[in-house]
């Protein structure tokens, strides 16, 4: 006998989480659900409550109200030892500047869960810092500190990895390497919770996204499903054809799904149609049937548009 599959087990969840700093309400009843084994992109404008949420999770501050769960079990200030299953890089990477990268990892490893023998060298290798591991961290570049921070987060082989702006200071190659590392970790069954402002980076990395604003969750779900909703096709037509093109496209997608961008002064204009990107050919055919030939066409989905529309910053 087989039953229907239950909901995905959660790595971390909050219900009604609230926290104020004086009269400023950073979190106002936040409900998050972070499934296990995914890369979760945690997004929000500055001051939305992202860092406060992470601080509550990591036992750095206590919430004023609400509950949290870690790996399906209730999680309170008394259960802070369970953070041994969590690796984190919060705000900026913190190290002793007078110690080498290797010694920093050793002293960090002396707290919390004990790293396995040889783990320090393993994570140094993983983040590409083994050659510089004997140098004082005070002489490291920001990108090197960031990579060492990721190494420190991985030190105890955590089930949940919490990273706050992990791409900060990384060069393009470093960003690609980090993305591959995080995807690899998720493929190993670990949960990666990434808070970031770099939306294209999150779009390439995350499976599930949560967007918060003013201390509340405004949207949470699978990224591919969200992007389907925000899919669009853009066509470029001669300005003389703009009116008839718009009418034809409105017949296809509806009046509210078509809008025209301001002209670029070169005689052509872009018209955007909110349809799934896979319908680009259909859009082109409709124009051709109306006797209009597009001079340009592109399609795609855009997390940034969704983010801006949800957080009211469009």
């Amino acid at each position: 006998m087989s039953g229907a599959p239950g909901p995905a087990p959660l790595a971390f969840a909050t219900r009604g989480l609230a926290r104020a700093y004086g009269t400023t309400h950073a979190l106002v009843g936040l409900d998050l659900a972070v499934p296990q084994g995914v890369v979760y992109g945690f997004l929000g404008p500055n001051g939305a409550g992202k860092t406060t949420t992470i601080r509550c999770l990591l036992g750095l501050i206590r919430p004023d109200a609400g509950t949290m769960e870690l790996f399906g079990e209730p999680y309170t200030a008394r259960d802070r030892h369970r953070l041994e299953q969590v690796g984190s890089l919060v705000e900026s990477p913190a190290f002793y500047p007078y110690l080498s990268g290797r010694d920093n990892l050793r002293v960090i490893g002396s707290t919390g869960a004990a790293p396995a023998r040889g783990r320090v060298e393993e994570v140094l290798e993983l983040v590409g810092l083994r050659d510089r591991a004997g140098d004082r961290v005070g002489g490291y570049s920001m990108g090197m500190r960031q990579r060492l921070g990721i190494a420190a987060a991985l030190l105890s082989d955590p089930r949940l990895l919490v990273l706050d702006e992990p791409a900060n200071g990384l060069d393009p190659a470093g960003i690609v390497a980090m993305r591959e590392t995080l995807r690899y970790l998720a493929a190993q069954g670990k949960t990666v919770f990434v808070s970031s402002h770099i939306l294209p980076e999150v779009q390439q990395l995350a499976d599930v996204v949560g967007i918060i604003d003013h201390g509340r969750l405004v949207r949470q779900g699978r990224l591919d499903e969200m992007l389907r909703e925000t899919g669009h096709v853009r066509v470029r037509v001669l300005s003389a054809d703009a009116g008839p093109a718009r009418e034809a496209l409105e017949r296809l997608a509806g009046r509210d799904a078509v809008w025209e961008a301001a002209g670029q002064g070169d005689g052509d204009g872009w018209i955007t149609v909110r349809v799934e990107p896979s319908r680009a050919g259909e859009v082109n055919r409709v124009l051709a049937q109306a006797g209009i030939y597009a001079t340009g066409l592109d399609s795609g989905s855009d997390l940034e548009s969704l983010f801006l529309s949800l957080t009211g910053n469009a």
């Binding site: 750095l60 953070l83 913190a94 960090i108 869960a113």
Partner: peptide
């Protein structure tokens, strides 16, 4: 000053023990 309390506590280390 160096933010290392944050690192130790977020690794699950007991604050008192630390």
């Amino acid at each position: 000053g160096w933010g290392m309390i944050r690192v130790a506590v977020s690794r699950g280390e007991s604050r008192g023990r630390y």
